[in-house]
Amino acid sequence: MLASALLVGIAVLTNPASAATPAQPRTDAHVTTIAAHTAVDTRIDNLHSRLQITATQESLWQPVAQVMRDNAAAMDSLRQSRTANAHSMSAVDDLRSYGQFIDTHADGIKKLTPPFEALYNSMSDAQKHNADLIFRNDRHATTKKG
């Protein structure tokens, strides 16, 4: 249940339903693990491709991608801490840990919305329609899985 609750919002932006575009050079401020870095960059590249980001929109896309990386790093850090302490947590500790996940996820969505809105506002009508479908369909697919 925890996984599905956390993934509902994240998967809206990161569902890898199409092939990834070639990796673009990046400067990552928060690299946690190679596996987490690779997964988030794959999701970012996928979304970039699916949203059909143009060369002109790259300067608006980069802040979106960076917030996605930062959010993934924050969630990965919480996940590692929870895993490390899972066997010694009391029920109250478990609830607090879950609350931290939810708060961090909500904060991440709040941080992602302004740069995504700027990108969205730069999109053509066809891109906006496509983005709306991606978010709508990915949300429903993720909700059905949970």
Rank of each mutant, 00 (worst) to 15 (best):
L51Y: 03
Q127S: 07
D76S: 11
L133R: 14
Y120M: 13
T113R: 15
T32G: 01
Q66V: 12
D70K: 02
I109L: 08
R136D: 03
I102P: 05
A118I: 07
L119N: 09
D125L: 13
P114Y: 13
P114D: 15
R96P: 00
H105V: 00
D28R: 00
Q100M: 10
N71S: 12
M89R: 13
H87V: 12
D94T: 15
L119Y: 02
A29H: 04
K111F: 09
D70L: 03
K110H: 10
K128M: 08
W61Y: 07
N130S: 12
Y98L: 13
I53H: 08
D76I: 10
A86M: 06
K128H: 03
P63G: 03
L51K: 05
D28H: 00
I102L: 09
D41Y: 02
Q66M: 07
H129E: 08
D125M: 05
E58H: 11
Q66I: 11
N71V: 05
P115L: 12
T54W: 04
S88T: 13
M68A: 10
K110Y: 11
T104N: 06
I44K: 14
I53C: 03
M75I: 09
A126I: 10
T54M: 02
A73E: 11
G99C: 05
R82W: 11
G99N: 09
T38S: 06
V31Y: 00
A36M: 00
A126T: 12
V64R: 03
L133I: 11
S124L: 02
T32C: 02
G108E: 03
A55Y: 07
Q57L: 07
A36H: 00
T113P: 00
N46F: 01
N130L: 11
V31T: 08
I34Q: 02
T38L: 03
I34E: 03
L133W: 06
D70Y: 05
T54N: 03
S122P: 01
T33N: 00
D103C: 05
I44F: 05
N130E: 14
V64W: 06
T56H: 07
T38W: 00
I53N: 09
A39C: 02
S59D: 14
M75G: 11
N121L: 11
D132H: 11
Y98C: 12
Q57K: 14
Q80G: 04
D107L: 15
K110N: 08
V31F: 00
Y120P: 13
I109T: 06
A29N: 04
T42C: 05
F135P: 02
L95A: 14
S88H: 11
T83D: 12
T38M: 06
R50V: 02
